[in-house]
């Protein structure tokens, strides 16, 4: 595996359609995730973006970091805009007004734009069965506006609107399981990914793009600014999220679960959490509680995956 990883980079296209000069924070895992996803998407794509970090860092008028057609309109409607793009293209091709060709329609948003304010538009678009790929770049809070909690913020994390304090442990609710919500729409393809596993991410985005009908890829995007960790640990942190079982990498293809990376033994969640300032206040008791929840969730995911393999 290690050796395989070391030489595969040469096989990945050098061409970027999300170009340098973007204003993402130093060590931004989301910019990395977007860059890798764009490699997978290639040229024949139209992206509808929600408001958020990636929109702000890539498009200050009169400039753009995008070399592919890209549209941003509002915060909560990326999936709805993508619906319109997909339907419009389909009709224009049918009526011969533009040439028939494969154009991947992509909607992209952060965790707030996906699991909070944009969930209705996303649910609608998935239910209607549009042929599009939705990419959620999850950095686990509203980072663009200053690290406010979202429904994707993990239990116990201190954010500016779920601050740890004498009467508060930080975020008091558990992270909303967005991939499961997507899968509950019975769409043909759902996956989780993380740029710390770049080839897996690229493969999944490619697969999602090729899937006829709705596809959803949920990408954990480490945010050194919001998670309060050193910028050079971005990739390592993502790996730890996977190796601790906090963010397992899996696919749900036509309802069948498949765990892409399994480990004989999960690392303790503290290996991941101790490196981040947002969890620094957590007591041993709470860390144990989190460990129990992660272990249980991972076991239930693994069971689903092994049931489906049978």
């Amino acid at each position: 595996m290690q050796n395989y990883n070391v030489y595969v980079p040469r096989l990945v296209t050098k061409k970027d359609t999300f170009v340098p000069g973007h204003r993402a924070c130093i060590g931004c895992g989301e910019a990395l995730a977007v860059r890798l996803a764009c490699k997978a998407l290639g040229q024949n794509v139209i992206i509808a973006s929600a408001t958020g970090c990636m929109e702000i860092v890539s498009s200050p008028l009169p400039t753009t970091s995008w070399k592919v057609p890209w549209i941003h309109t509002l915060f909560e409607n990326a999936a709805a805009v993508a619906s319109g793009i997909e339907s419009g293209l389909k009709m224009l091709m049918k009526k011969g007004r533009i040439a028939e060709q494969e154009i991947t329609v992509v909607a992209m948003a952060g965790d707030g734009g996906t699991s909070d304010i944009g969930i209705q538009a996303l649910s609608g678009a998935m239910e209607r069965g549009h042929n599009f790929l939705y990419l959620c770049f999850d950095n686990e809070a509203y980072m663009n506006t200053g690290i406010q909690r979202s429904s994707a913020t993990p239990f116990g994390a201190s954010t500016t609107t779920s601050p740890a304090g004498k009467q508060s442990i930080g975020q008091a609710s558990w992270k909303k399981n967005m991939p499961a919500i997507a899968a509950a729409h019975n769409i043909p393809y759902v996956a989780t990914a993380c740029p710390s596993y770049p080839f897996d991410l690229i493969e999944k985005v490619e697969k999602g793009a090729k899937t006829p009908g709705p596809a959803y890829v949920h990408i954990l995007s480490v945010c050194p600014t919001g998670w309060r960790c050193p910028t050079d640990l971005t990739v390592r942190m993502g790996r730890l999220a996977v190796e601790t079982g906090i963010f397992p990498l899996y696919e749900v293809e036509n309802g069948q679960y498949k765990l892409n990376f399994d480990f004989p033994e999960l690392r303790p969640v503290t290996d991941y959490m101790k490196l981040q300032g947002r969890f620094r206040h957590l007591s041993e008791d709470l860390l144990v509680k989190i460990q129990q929840r992660v272990t249980a969730d991972y076991a239930s995911l693994k069971e689903k995956a092994s049931d489906d393999e049978k």
Binding site: T17, V19, P20, G21, S58, P62, T63, T64, W66
Partner: peptide, 15 residues
């Protein structure tokens, strides 16, 4: 509509 027609022109921005 303030559309930007020069793809990737943010590459001129020094970070």
């Amino acid at each position: 509509g303030a559309i930007v027609t020069e793809p990737g022109n943010a590459a001129q921005y020094k970070t």
